[in-house]
Amino acid sequence: MQQKVVIELKIKCSKCRSKALKIVAVQNGITKFGFEPENRNRMVIIGDGIIDAAGLALSLRKKLGYADLVSVEEVEEES
């Protein structure tokens, strides 16, 4: 089972974007992450098992000032 989490951020500069990516990269169970191409303020995170989405949003909020949890859903695993 994989889980997809979408978090809305307020990215002001490339340093903030880099900081957000570093915070997500060190979390356990995350396999893919990045920003949506059409909305550069939305981060999409995909991980194996259950991701602590609320804890992740809280960590981003502490470092960046704003992070809103948009959605959490199950996705089918790619083969």
Rank of each mutant, 00 (worst) to 15 (best):
G47A: 11
V24D: 03
C16H: 05
K32G: 02
A54D: 15
R42K: 12
D52W: 09
L64G: 02
K4I: 04
E77I: 15
R40V: 10
N28I: 08
E74S: 14
L56K: 02
G29S: 13
E74C: 06
T31R: 14
F33Y: 15
N28Y: 10
L21I: 09
R40D: 10
G34T: 03
E77D: 13
A67I: 06
L69K: 01
I46Q: 13
K10G: 00
G29E: 11
I46F: 10
V5E: 05
I7F: 02
N39P: 00
K32M: 01
V70A: 00
K19R: 13
Q2H: 14
L56C: 08
S71E: 07
R61E: 11
L60V: 04
I51A: 11
F33S: 03
I7G: 01
R42N: 06
D52P: 11
S18L: 07
V24P: 00
I46R: 14
L56S: 03
A57F: 03
K63T: 08
D52S: 10
E78L: 10
L9W: 01
V44M: 08
I45W: 06
G47H: 07
V75T: 14
M1A: 11
K15Y: 15
R40H: 04
E38I: 05
K10P: 02
Q2Y: 14
L9K: 01
L64H: 00
E78R: 08
S18C: 10
K63E: 15
G49S: 10
I50F: 12
K63C: 08
Q3F: 09
Q3I: 06
C16L: 02
V70E: 02
A54E: 12
G65R: 00
V5H: 02
C13R: 13
K15S: 12
I7C: 07
A57R: 05
K62D: 09
Q27D: 06
N41F: 01
K32N: 13
V24K: 06
K32R: 08
V72I: 15
A53K: 08
R42F: 05
Y66M: 01
V26A: 09
R17G: 07
I23Q: 03
I23H: 05
A54G: 11
E76T: 13
D48L: 04
L56H: 01
D52N: 15
V44S: 05
P37G: 09
V70I: 15
K32H: 11
K15H: 12
K15T: 15
C16R: 00
I46Y: 05
L58K: 14
R40N: 13
V5L: 03
M43P: 00
R42I: 03
A25H: 06
G55S: 11
I50A: 14
S59H: 08
K22P: 04
D48Y: 14
C13V: 07
I46K: 13
R17V: 05
A20Q: 00
Q3K: 12
A20E: 00
D48I: 09
E76I: 10
E77C: 11
N39H: 09
